[in-house]
Write a protein that binds this DNA or RNA. Sequence first.
DNA 1: CGCCGATTTGACTCAGATCAAGGTTTGTGG
DNA 2: CCACAAACCTTGATCTGAGTCAAATCGGCG
Lengths: 253, 253
Amino acid sequence: MTEPTQINFDQLKVSCASCSLRELCIPQGMNAEELKLIESIVERKKPVHKNDYLFRAGDTNRYLYAVLSGSIKTLVDNPNGEEQIVGFHLPGELLGMDGFSGDSHTCSAVALETSSVCEFPLESLDNVCHDVPSIQYAMRRIMGKEVAKDHAMLLLLGRMSAEEKLASFLISLSKRMAQRHWKPTEFNLTMPRQDIANYLGLAVETVSRLFAHLQDEDIIEVDRRRVNICDMTRLRAIVGDNEDVKAAKAKQG
Amino acid sequence: MTEPTQINFDQLKVSCASCSLRELCIPQGMNAEELKLIESIVERKKPVHKNDYLFRAGDTNRYLYAVLSGSIKTLVDNPNGEEQIVGFHLPGELLGMDGFSGDSHTCSAVALETSSVCEFPLESLDNVCHDVPSIQYAMRRIMGKEVAKDHAMLLLLGRMSAEEKLASFLISLSKRMAQRHWKPTEFNLTMPRQDIANYLGLAVETVSRLFAHLQDEDIIEVDRRRVNICDMTRLRAIVGDNEDVKAAKAKQG
DNA sequence: CGCCGATTTGACTCAGATCAAGGTTTGTGG
DNA sequence: CCACAAACCTTGATCTGAGTCAAATCGGCG
């Protein structure tokens, strides 16, 4: 996640057209004209530092955010003051949709490392959506993806064992690394163990033990924040996402 | 949930203007003109019977659905064939947004009892959104609410004890009963214990024992599917959602 | 070097799952 | 209308995956 493209924070003008994250961000699949419109509304904020809040639950929701560099976590609080991390957001990924329901955010966003974001003012976004049907359609798809992603997390939290949860988490990260054209098998975790544990509904110690266990099995190598997936096939097998299982299921009907 | 307004299934013409669920459904807060537009695109399907699928994961997504009567559950499957229920939908509530991300649904919808739904064809919906900014805005809010709701479920599944989960579930139902102007303290569960357990990430036996326990404590009365909440204050206290806790937190800052 | 937070490791505990009956309600066909 | 089966729900006994508690180790940094 600290991997790629160096971002020049001083460069204040944004160019979606030349952004390496275009394929993942709102402008996915847009033509030159549409890009220009999106570009005309996007604002850049000065970097948020590690542990800084990008926004807090209750803040007025005026933007949709896209991570440009770094990584951001989003979390909700319960009445007892405990928190549940609901997402880790990598460059090109969007956040802030939780606030579309009313005037204010229902979750908070905190930088896991020094990060920069692009801001899309909601009002302008509404306008371009209205003016350009393809952008309206893109927004609908983006929100649908968010819902589908959350459903996948409900499945993870509701039905998976600790080992399946961690395996799913690593596979998800790996996929997202690949989308960014970074190494899909070797990457840094930008979040502490505690955050991984919280996100997966586990205790830190359990996460630590699971990392050790997966390493013993030669499925991954871990050194502190560095992860190397040695055997993706067996990692997938843990969550049952492998050919054998699928074939067996298909046979049964 | 089998409570209210009798719906005449033969009545093929839909009138959003006279629908008792208007306040909860897409037409919330719309003026006469906007209502007419929404009314012009909505279609009514013949009732779905208990255990019938309204749609399945993988089906082409052509509609946004609103429950008109009855109740519907939505669920996602994991690679092993287990399923996780991701939502119970009461009259006036919407479903199908998961499919906005692509062409097809990522979850399935099954009727818990004989139910009827209103269908909003996506294409027409896109059109009215484009023509009427206030409807576009309403749709954005609706999707934001969906995301916020899913975050609340992540918190429930990730951080709550079995008792807190069931208490949250009952409180949520109670609130939704109140929104529908039904009794908020006395209602029928339209889903079997097994579905409640699945939804909350618990075993059936645990749910059964928890109902018994809450009854012992005189917090609720349960008789099969019938629930009566006797002591809402103590029910709220279980999830920490009470004045004492809030006051204590406020004092600490 | 020495402190501090993050991580790991080990020992023990427990909430909730699993296993095993038994009871009750609903639906169905004769 | 009754007998029977199939769901559904409850209750008790036991087991276990993961949490909790405690302590050591590691790494970075002033």
